[in-house]
């Protein structure tokens, strides 16, 4: 773009006829495009390459839902039903058995066919140990072959979590935190 503006200014400012008579204005334009001809191409060949050296999908991307698990593989969900209540499209369905601290999550279903990707469920989640319990992943390929495929069960959501980069990042963070805690404990023991 800067090259273009430069050439345009140069051509526009010329007043002498000699310059135009020998087609120098056309030459300037042609040289500009010739330069672009040999520039590095910026197209990403999408289905074959999903990210390039310059670009990958940002982690803030609000893609597929996932149920996060901690480093021991336990679901972080505390079955507070906040996400189910706040969802404007009623696409989250949660069922649990037991009561008090003994609650067991039996069903956690996200129906993407109704989801409007507002992201309120992620915000409403009160859990905050490294990540929330229900998190958006960076996966953006949502199309499936059947309507039923859009309904994500608990296992699918957990699988989404393990497929996502976020699980790895969370794991690393958790390990770092553990190490720091161990260090702190050592320090406190020393002191």
């Amino acid at each position: 773009m800067e090259d273009y503006i430069k050439v345009k200014r140069e051509v526009g400012n010329r007043k002498d006829e000699m310059w135009y008579a020998f087609l120098q204005d056309l030459k300037a334009g042609l040289c500009l495009t010739l330069g672009y001809l040999f520039k590095k191409k910026i197209t990403m060949q999408y289905p074959y390459e999903k990210s390039t050296a310059e670009w990958s999908i940002p982690l803030r991307w609000r893609g597929l839902h996932a149920l996060s698990a901690d480093e021991n593989g336990r679901l972080k969900c505390i079955m507070c039903l906040q996400c189910m209540k706040i969802c404007p499209d009623h696409c989250i369905k949660i069922r649990f058995s037991g009561a008090g601290k003994e609650r067991v999550l039996e069903e956690f279903t996200v129906d993407l066919s109704r989801c409007s990707a507002c992201g309120l469920c992620f915000e409403a989640c009160p859990v905050n140990s490294i990540t929330k319990a229900i998190v958006p992943t960076e996966k953006y390929e949502l199309s499936v072959y059947s309507r039923e495929g859009l309904v994500y069960k608990k296992e699918d959501l957990l699988k989404n979590w393990y497929d996502s980069v976020k699980s790895r990042i969370a794991l690393e963070k958790a390990e770092n935190m553990k190490k720091e805690e161990v260090k702190k404990e050592e320090k406190s023991v020393e002191s």
Partner: peptide, 13 residues
């Protein structure tokens, strides 16, 4: 192809 290259694309691939 040339159209693509001039526009910093690949053209048919």
């Amino acid at each position: 192809k040339v159209a693509g290259w001039i526009q910093v694309r690949f053209g048919p691939m």
